[in-house]
Amino acid sequence: MSPEFPYLPDEGVVVVQRGPEPGGVGGAYRAFGETLRGLKTTFARIIEGPVTIQYPEEKTPVYPRFRGRHKLHKFEDTGLEKCVGCSLCAAACPADCIRVVAAENDPDDRVSAGERYAEVYEINLARCIFCGYCEVACPFDAITMGHEYELADYNREDLVFTKEMLLAEPVERTPLRREGE
């Protein structure tokens, strides 16, 4: 219930303790202290130079475990594909974006190490959610998630990456971000 106006002193009035009067060193500190602390960081960064990344001329750095576009691998010594077309990545894929059609190796013209190789290996990157399950599922470390993230395109069809595209050395390398950076 609000008191009637005009109210009388000493009646229903709360006395508030006020701060010190402005002025003096304490006053100055109180006025600028926090600001200066903030500026300390600002000036410290000034000497580092600009942080704006001139994308797309410059690439945004990523962490080592960043999950970008997939890559397929070959053995360095024999040149055979590591992928044997087992389709486990397709089974693990929650977005159902991997399609593997396997075929039988010809011992005279071998594609992979076992009896089987992936004749068709397609990832539909338009559907991929980059969860990395395919990488986890792979028993041969044949597929890994790379660091490439510039995947926009004009056609949806172009986002279906074939085995040859996934096997090719990536054209664009993305700088790595180090720990504590």
Partner: peptide, 9 residues
């Protein structure tokens, strides 16, 4: 049928 499909396909 060899290598044509996996059960989940």
């Amino acid at each position: 049928y060899r290598f044509r499909a996996r059960p989940w396909d």
